[in-house]
Amino acid sequence: MGFQPIKFYQTGTYTVGNRLLSPDQRSVQAAESRSNSINSGHRACQGCGEALGARYAIDAAMAESHNRLIAVNATGCLEVFSTPYPESSWQVPWIHSVFGNAPAVATGIAAAMKVKGKTDVRVVAQGGDGGTTDIGFGCLSGMFERNDDVLYICYDNQAYMNTGVQRSSATPPAARTATTMPVGPEPGNPFGQGKNLPEIAMAHGIPYVATATVADLRDLEYKVRRAMRMRGARYIHLFVPCPLGWGTASHDTIRIARLAKESGLFPVFEAEHGEVRSVLKIRRKVRVEEYLMPQKRFAHLFGSHPHPEMVIRIQEIADRNIRKYGLLDEEEAA
């Protein structure tokens, strides 16, 4: 059983809170008492999806663990903008070791907590898509395979942002990055097979895998809280637009995330022990153009020398996701 929307018609489950909801139905983010795990004064770009996603996720984890939480961070934007000496934005115990080892560091902490009998203290590891799908992948897979008691959260902004927007294995086809420039016959990132980390995580048979976006806070909080109620290795893949790297307006971060989901390009679902348990249906389906066009990293697909054939291929990816995960309600899909 997936995420249960609250029957409330003014704004439904979509807003962060609402004065009319009973407090137990409100999101963590709606509370004055939320932990603000990453506090003001951090140096993320304006409208940074990763900064937002991290607070959403870690605050929810804090709430679920009754503030008994330790966070590990891989190298990347989140780490850099939150802890440049002499100031830290974190309000939770936090450690950054290196780029590729966050899952293992977390394992070590979890082991320490276990051996000390502090099983109430929970461990979250987090990293960017590069830190997760590329350089940290070995450690992540090991952590999954051992089923260590760690919740790993990947903030997927689809490139190595901290080093200046280079391609990662999570960069989508056609996207412009500093290492996949929009030149030549197939501009931007080549169409590959992709590296679907949530599915790879599922293949480990770990207790919980979920995807989410910063556009759907309640779904995200539900997933974090659910993950936190379980033991063992858990993985949440969180889609976080990056205004700088994607060439989007800073106020569009959430809209872009919403369009990624509504177009089917980013399927939002949860899985337990390798089986998909629920999907967040597309509510107002859009074509991929609507998602692609506001982003400068896809500008070369449109403009004066457009590449409609590439847009079609991207639409095919979306359609495949829709079929594969059943993202549309029956009637609409028919």
Partner: peptide, 14 residues
């Protein structure tokens, strides 16, 4: 109408 959206979506807790 106090939906808390602005309070929630600000990446800077501002």
């Amino acid at each position: 109408f106090e939906c808390d959206n602005c309070y929630g979506v600000c990446p800077d807790n501002a």
